[in-house]
Amino acid sequence: MWQKWFSVKGKSLFSIAFSLHRLTGVVLTIYLCMHLAYLTSIRMGKEVFESFIATTVTPQFLIFDILLVLAGIYHGVNGLRLILHEFGLTYESRKSILYVSVAIVLIVWLIASYRMYTFVMGV
């Protein structure tokens, strides 16, 4: 059933882009719920909040953060591509636009990951 959204055997890059958009959409929604729950700690005072930060803003969590940011950037950039096409523009050049989107995702992700790395390591 729902597995069919993620079956990409024999499909083009466009279908893979769709599968990833759906996957990242769901991942981000789950993260949103976790994020809202996490923010409760701010209302519980300085100690609770800082102990949360001390456990999550750490090198061990960095890898999850970086993957999450990849999901976010992919969903955002691919989302802009979809908005363009769904509003009726430029489907004729959809192949080149897809390639450009993937390139933008990778570049932005590398920059963001580097910045997060230095941020967590306190460089």
């Binding site: 976010g72 955002g76 989302g79 802009l80 979809l82 908005i83 769904e86 509003f87």
Partner: peptide, 12 residues
């Protein structure tokens, strides 16, 4: 689609 556009700005 519109909220997607707005989110690009706000989330960034």
């Amino acid at each position: 689609l519109i909220s997607g556009l707005i989110l690009t700005v706000l989330v960034t």
